[in-house]
């Protein structure tokens, strides 16, 4: 049971964009360099994120990307669903099986759908702004702390 590379790298790149675009839009090559992810790969990921309305592109030679909405309005749920598809722990195929078999339904109702509910509640409660705050804490990017 693993997240896809798209989910992992996409979220990492998006957190990077959220942190550094506070200073202005960021080119994919800057993000790629800081995060050690191939720029070509990031192009695919950002095309997905742009279609989902999560980032917007600034065209031109000095172009790049910005968040399309404030970081506090972008939940992890929305971002991960854009990158990974639905966040259900079981394949869609199970939906047809539960109609035909009570054992399969019983496990679905008592295990898989409960996990789905918990995971969705968790990712919908965390915003990109929360992740940016953690990023700054972990990477000692909170200069004001030294003055307290």
């Amino acid at each position: 049971m693993k997240l896809s590379t798209k989910g992992r790298y996409g979220l990492r790149a998006l957190i990077d964009l959220a942190v550094f675009s506070e200073e202005g839009h960021q080119s994919l090559s800057n993000i790629a360099e800081r995060e050690c992810i191939s720029e070509i790969y990031l192009e695919q990921v950002f095309s997905t994120l742009r279609k989902a309305g999560i980032v917007k592109s600034i065209k031109g030679a000095q172009g790049g990307y910005l968040l399309n909405e404030p970081a506090k309005d972008l939940t992890m749920g929305r971002i991960l669903r854009a990158l990974e598809g639905n966040l259900s722990i079981v394949d869609e195929k199970v939906k047809t099986e539960i109609e035909k078999n009570d054992i399969i339904y019983c496990i679905y109702a008592n295990i898989w759908s409960k996990i789905d509910d918990k995971l969705n509640a968790l990712v919908d409660a965390v915003t990109l702004e929360d992740m940016v705050a953690e990023y700054k804490k972990m990477n000692n990017l909170l200069p004001e702390m030294y003055y307290i």
Binding site: R12, I15, I89, M138
Partner: peptide, 17 residues
């Protein structure tokens, strides 16, 4: 790694169930 905090949170939810 900040993402890892989220992945850990997800893993904990699955374990609890």
């Amino acid at each position: 790694c900040v993402s890892r905090l989220l992945w850990k949170g997800m893993s904990d939810e699955i374990d609890k169930v």
